[in-house]
Amino acid sequence: MNASLDPPMDGLDEMILGQLACLFDAVDPPPAGLADDVLFTLSLAALDAELATLADASALQLRTSAASPSDTVTFTSSALQLMVSATPDGDGLRIDGWITGGGLRVELIAGTTSWSATSDVNGRLVWHGVPHGAIRFLMHRDDEGSRTVLTPLIEL
């Protein structure tokens, strides 16, 4: 290409560049797990899931203080509705959910970890010991061929 126009690089130049790479990796390294997070996001996108919306956009944060233990957030999609609320549970949180249907598998996803639960006949779901942080839900429909539903992230 235009390599002939380049000032020649000698061993010292390459050594300086090598030191620079180490320096930036020491001073400002990419976050550990960034590549894993990217791959996980890509795998969710590959599901071609329908994206649920927050019924109340103002409820982006579920408050979990003792004063308001019963705040709930509702997600809606074309076929399913999921309502969740959080209460303190030891060091973590207990998440109660209700979904429009029994026997539906719902995954609670935090970072690259997911916990699966299946709704009972009344559509009830529960997760214990969920760590604080950003979570989202992935709902699997029971009928073959229908799209899974992914919720936006909420902060707990």
Binding site: N2, A3, L5, D6, P7, M9, L12, D13, I16, L17
Partner: peptide, 17 residues
């Protein structure tokens, strides 16, 4: 611009060196 990246690199590296 692709034509000036070599010289730019050269200038930066020469100054640092």
């Amino acid at each position: 611009p692709v034509g000036s990246i070599g010289p730019t690199r050269g200038r930066c590296l020469v100054a640092l060196r």
